[in-house]
Design a binder for these strands. Structure first.
Lengths: 340, 340
DNA sequence: AAGAGACGAGCATACGTATTCACTGGTTCA
DNA sequence: TGAACCAGTGAATACGTATGCTCGTCTCTT
């Protein structure tokens, strides 16, 4: 097992000095083209690759991004929000294209993740994925920002510090979903999802829901709004809560597909027919949405563009640029759960 | 924005030398307990954390594992095999518990991933996830092994070099699935999935299928075996192929849930009733399996234990130990698709 | 009472790269 | 014809940590 070749080895074989090798391989223009080619050929033949740690230590940049999933404390390890997972592919590819490595980690919102990444120089920038109130981690975020670590997060555009939030047009999506139900003749539309500030994205979807009601001349009924975080259990519980209230409703707009799926199960168990008795629309368009019975009408967020936008924004911040993208468009996908 | 503290800063404040700080923080026993506590207190108050790159460079170990998903060349970025994705959580947590960082990357089986990770010292060990014949990347794997990089992969236990493969009891699972269909009175059971050597795991499931047939005194009919890789499209195509052959079958054992779901769609489109006309059993128990109509009977692989076993095996290899675990047990989950 | 350990800590150095500065020989311009 | 310049390269050094070696001070043994 021969020792790994270093830039000194290449230098010796090429008859140049080590700095020249370093410059040649990094594409510095102050190296003669012939010399560069000779060096590159030798490097290739020796399977030489720059030592990442030495390079990072010297240049003070990790060439690495970190992807942090925030999970609810009580949550099972394996139940990651499917929509976030669907971003994984495009985030990974976008990083690779930019020449960055990607570290991945699951964290409690309340944990010490800020120390781990900033203070140990593991990553140049961090992507935060997870629902949750910005206030809950503002202090940690501030610490990172002060230290110069760049951060972007998926969330409700307009909340949090400027230029760090990338997100979908939740309000527009919520309006489209609700307007669709209204167009199908529904009038008593329940909203399942947090309407308070703890989940700004869900709140925006609720605003869109209200927008649509107003536009149609309908008034919102507080009895038809049930708090639910984005899990199937929450969807199930929400149906129970509606029943407890004796609420009268002919449609549901669920703030996420997971909630919708939980609700559909509970409705089916209660002998309710979908969409005849209750029409339902979700949000996210996770893979499972096509498989429910009936298939779930939902609002698509483009996970690929979302992931790419996150990486693009973060890389821009690393270069010192400010890029404040508008919210990503959403699109209503009509399936059977909202009526024929 | 103050400069990051280094071990020299800590040393000065503690009135000791830099090496002592290093030793104290790494828990070397040759540091006086009081001294250590003093150093630790100072480090904490300064938010000091060991610089990862300097540490890795000096110690020649990255303290990082890499998780490589192999994707089919033609595959869409976003369609990652759901079963592999479900391992992500437990792999990530297992790494974190062991104090390792986790790099993640998607790669073509045929690409240059071996160079990227070994030659640049990015990771101490690599976890390979993806179906595919071992022969297809034997050369790259050999290169890594020669260089001393440790590798484990998810696959068919018994294939590939000793001690690097962690996998489920595919044969046992295949037998259980098929035996279940036989117990339900089915006699003409089709197998959807590769039976040749290209996908050893699927081949093992096929062997289990044959085991069950033999045990029941049935003979396998070659007309009922259709090659299918693990995608929904392949499942759809397989049903078309059976129809083309004019095959007579009353049940299907699909080598993966994705195949099964594709097959179910095709059957439904053809007006066939599940399970009355055709009973069906899948393999993997991905999340979507609960949502199909009817819900899919399938063979569960314990994704959490799988991920943990991969990490445990890899860490053992890093310590120079050899651990050859037996295949992980599988379990039949009976739902409606296989009959009442 | 003297040698042998054990303990605790410092000195020097190595890990492999990137970058600043200085230098050489040739070219250009006034 | 000399001064200013440029392309191309090497020498020296810094990045922050971990570790082998050395050394002094105690304690313990014989």
């Amino acid at each position: 097992m021969a020792r790994r070749p270093t830039s000194f080895d290449i230098a010796q074989l090429a008859g140049v000095s080590q700095p020249t090798v370093s410059r040649a391989l990094r594409g510095s223009k102050s190296v003669n083209a012939q010399t560069r080619q000779r060096i590159e050929a030798i490097a290739r033949s020796l399977h030489y690759a720059v030592d990442k740690h030495a390079s990072s230590l010297r240049s003070q940049s990790a060439n690495t991004l970190a992807l942090l999933f925030f999970e609810e404390p009580a949550e099972d390890e394996s139940t990651i929000n499917p929509f976030f997972l669907s971003m994984l592919g495009s985030i990974t590819h976008a990083c690779a294209r930019a020449g960055y490595d990607l570290l991945i980690s699951f964290q409690q919102l309340s944990g010490d993740w800020h120390v781990d990444y900033q203070d140990s120089r593991k990553a140049d920038g961090i992507i935060l994925l997870g629902y949750g109130d910005y206030e809950a981690y503002r202090a940690r975020l501030d610490h990172l920002t002060e230290q110069g670590t760049k951060v972007v997060r998926w969330g409700a555009v307009g909340t949090g510090p400027a230029g760090i939030t990338v997100g979908s047009d939740n309000r527009g999506g919520g309006e489209a979903a609700t307007a669709h139900l209204i167009a199908r003749g529904r009038r008593r539309i329940a909203f399942l999802g947090a309407a308070d500030g703890r989940y700004p994205e869900l709140e925006d979807r609720y605003r869109g829901y209200l927008d649509a009601l107003v536009a149609a001349g309908l008034t919102a009924d507080a009895a038809l709004q049930v708090d639910a975080i984005t899990t199937e259990d929450a969807g199930r519980d929400a149906i129970a809560e509606l029943a407890r209230r004796g609420a009268d409703y002919d449609a549901i707009f669920a703030a996420s597909d997971s909630i919708a799926i939980g609700a559909m199960r509970a409705l089916a168990a209660a002998g309710q027919s979908i969409p005849d008795d209750v029409a339902i629309v979700g949000f996210d368009d996770i893979a499972s949405a096509q498989l429910t019975n009936p298939p779930l009408t939902t609002v698509t967020q483009d996970a690929r563009r979302a992931g790419e936008a996150l990486v693009r924004t973060l890389l821009a911040k690393l270069r010192g640029e400010v890029s404040d993208d508008p919210p990503l468009p959403t699109r209503l996908v009509i399936r059977a759960s909202s009526g024929a």
